[in-house]
């Protein structure tokens, strides 16, 4: 009885927020091209105002998933909800919530960036005044404010930046970026990442990549897509915690000490001169011995798995 009573009580504000929280929800999404099954039941939830990293190796199905969300492809099975509205192929109503940056964006080369943004604003149905102020604001944000030339001669980085400007123009609830940094040089990459981070207050960002350092730098949450399925999802910390090894690495100053310790406590050496302590119960014992014998050491650190390790682990164990 008591349990029922709690079941039936109205939802608290916090819970309402929790349920209305996801900008994008994908359920059991399947897509095949010919005989090739690219997506085999993808489930994904992207919460509001987060930078969400969509990770996977080349050909894992990231672009396909994004195109399905944009209604550019028809799914074979499953459901996609953007802001609670279902996405249907060919009819792109839900696209009014979405800003999209394709992997290699192409524009009408005969226009200037400002003209292009005006064009974008007009087809989105923004009013004239808003288009003017917003496009100036966006061009400034991406560093193309003074660009009077036509898009024709733009470099890849410039096109990518213009891409972000056009994607953010109409203040979308969800910004989808398909590998925005993959084709850029380090400086161009940093510029794009900085712009994305600064856009985080306004919108939710879903961005696909196979560059894990980018994910570590700017993402709050991530999902790993492999072989058409999401095999891992959560905040960066959660993902790391799940796979975090408990090992402690100790590097004595002298290799002889390392060897001695290894022999006494039967420790493995991660590489020559660095000891790896896998059993947490051993830690105090080893530390005591080091203190008692005044063994000098260079460093002692908790071994933390990098996203690369997690990525490779996850893909291999699948």
């Amino acid at each position: 009885m008591l349990e029922n009573a709690t079941e039936n009580r109205p939802l608290s504000q916090k819970e309402v927020n929790m349920t209305a929280h996801n900008v994008l929800e994908i359920e059991n999404l399947e897509k095949r091209f010919g005989d090739k099954k690219v997506l085999r039941g993808v489930d994904l939830k992207v919460p509001e105002k987060k930078v969400f990293g969509f990770v996977g190796k080349n050909g894992a199905g990231k672009t396909t998933t994004m195109k399905l969300v944009l209604g550019l492809l028809a799914p074979d099975n499953g459901n996609i909800l953007v802001e609670g509205e279902r996405v249907t192929y060919g009819n792109n109503k839900t696209n009014r919530y979405i800003g999209y940056l394709p992997d290699v964006p192409e524009y009408y080369a005969f226009m200037t960036p400002k003209e292009y943004l005006t064009f974008c604003g007009e087809i989105t149905g923004m009013d004239k005044k808003e288009i003017k102020t917003r496009s100036e604001e966006m061009l400034k944000l991406v560093g193309l404010g003074d660009e009077k030339h036509r898009i024709k001669g733009f470099s890849r980085g410039m096109k990518q930046r213009l891409g972000i400007a056009q994607a953010l123009l109409a203040k979308p609830k969800l910004l989808i970026c398909d590998e925005p940094t993959s084709a850029l040089d380090p400086i161009g990459r940093k510029e794009i990442l900085d712009i994305l981070v600064s856009a985080k207050d306004e919108t939710t960002i879903l961005f696909s990549t196979h560059i894990l350092s980018d994910v570590e730098h700017i993402c709050d949450e991530m999902a790993l897509l492999n072989d058409g399925r999401i095999i891992m999802q959560g905040t960066i910390d959660e993902v790391k915690k799940n796979r975090r090894s408990n090992a402690l690495l100790i590097q004595p100053e002298h290799k002889a000490d390392a060897k001695k310790l290894a022999d006494i406590f039967k420790l493995s050496q991660e590489k020559e001169g660095t000891l790896q302590l896998n059993d947490p119960s051993q830690i105090s014992e080893v530390l005591r011995y080091i203190a008692d014998n005044d063994i000098p050491f260079v460093k002692m650190e908790k071994q933390e798995a990098t996203l690369e390790d997690i990525f490779i682990d996850a893909i291999h164990s699948n």
């Binding site: 944009l70 792109n92 394709p102 149905g125």
Partner: peptide, 11 residues
């Protein structure tokens, strides 16, 4: 691929 951008803008 220029139409992709136009369509994804909701035209």
């Amino acid at each position: 691929g220029t139409l992709v951008q136009v369509v994804t803008k909701g035209l």
